[in-house]
């Protein structure tokens, strides 16, 4: 049996808004094994970032209601105190954010922001400095001795994201959450940054929860893939299995929407409609209004997660 590092069980997140509760995440369950990469994929607004932020308990407005459990190394992160959570963040779970342009504090030198994390583990100023230089070297930042003195705005987007990777892996976390780490970067830089991240994680033996909407990235580095739609995990399985044999109509449509060079047709496949805002939880399939196979069952009862293979979960009435 493989060693599970993170197990999310029936996670649901509802944001309190004026009209009631907005269901951002509903009944999401998945787990990540040690050293593996799970990619959560879906359209904008499908709740994948919310899952990431909820695991780290990083909420700005404190206006959400969380249900379910998040087990990290056997500890339920939804139950522990804020002080205990502070010990988990950075030390056991690191997180890289979407936009490296504003993820670093503009008034401090980049190296000192990495050192700040290291100092939490009791390193002296000098030790921290040496370690930061080493880390910069590991994430392939040229001239690390000079670059640690650079302010964030003096670094390019790719360099800043490397600083973030260095910062978040500085304390050897067992899990790294990467929330669309390369969305804001150029395609050429994207590959470099991803490779660096993957290499670093392999070296550290860290697992990765990768949030993305880019299937290219998924194919490149993920071991497993979870496809999210409107706050629900609709299909989850091994990467090759899902790519070869997508079962959920949404997964099929999403994969069909990938532009293929071989095709001579001038148009790109799209999925009609948009992701609905779920204000009221109703017994229905959330994809029903966009699904070509939907019938009465889909409109009046929620599909349960079922396993069509030992390792392949899907949430659909029709499969």
């Amino acid at each position: 049996m493989e060693d599970t590092i993170l197990r999310v069980e029936h996670l649901s997140v509802d944001y309190k808004i004026k009209a009631g509760y907005l269901s951002a995440v509903n009944d999401v369950s998945f787990s990540i094994d040690r050293g593996k990469v799970l990619a959560l994929v879906g359209e904008s607004g499908c709740g994948k970032s919310t899952v990431a932020h909820t695991i780290m308990r990083l909420s700005i407005d404190h206006n959400e209601r969380i249900g379910g459990n998040i087990f990290f190394e056997g500890q339920d992160l939804t139950k522990i105190s804020e002080a205990e959570m502070e010990k988990v963040r950075g030390k056991h779970i690191g997180m890289i954010f979407q936009n490296p342009l504003d993820s670093l504090n503009p008034v401090y030198r980049s190296g000192s922001q990495v050192a700040e994390a290291l100092r939490l583990d009791g390193l002296s100023k000098h030790e921290a400095r040496e370690r930061v230089i080493q880390l910069y070297r590991d994430v392939q930042i040229p001239n690390p001795e000079e670059r640690i003195e650079a302010f964030p705005h003096e670094l390019s987007g790719g360099m800043r994201q490397r600083v973030m990777i260095a910062m978040m892996l500085a304390r050897h976390p067992q899990l790294l959450i990467a929330d669309e780490p390369t969305t804001a970067l150029d395609v050429t830089v994207e590959a470099q940054v991803l490779n660096i991240m993957k290499e670093m994680c392999d070296k550290e033996g860290a697992s990765v929860l990768l949030i993305t909407h880019n299937f290219g990235i998924v194919a490149e580095i993920a071991d497993r893939i979870g496809i999210m739609y409107a706050g629900e995990l609709v299909e989850e399985g091994e990467v090759h299995e899902i790519f070869r044999n997508p079962v959920h109509p949404y997964s099929q449509a999403l994969l069909a929407a990938l532009p293929k060079i071989k095709k001579s047709e001038g148009t790109i496949q799209t999925i009609e409609g948009t992701v609905p805002r779920i204000l009221e939880k109703k017994p229905e399939c959330r994809f029903a209004n966009r699904c070509p196979y939907a019938d009465e069952t889909c409109r009046f009862s929620s599909p349960e997660a079922k396993f069509i293979a030992p390792d392949h979960m899907v949430r659909c009435h029709k499969r």
Binding site: M95, S103, N105, V107, E116, A117
Partner: peptide
């Protein structure tokens, strides 16, 4: 600001985040 989330994510305590990152800016 995003960098406040970063500060939390690397494991800083609330007080350090507030004084070193929020108040400073």
């Amino acid at each position: 600001e995003k960098y406040v989330l970063t500060a939390y994510a690397k494991g800083l305590k609330k007080k350090s985040v507030l004084v070193k990152h929020v108040l400073r800016n």
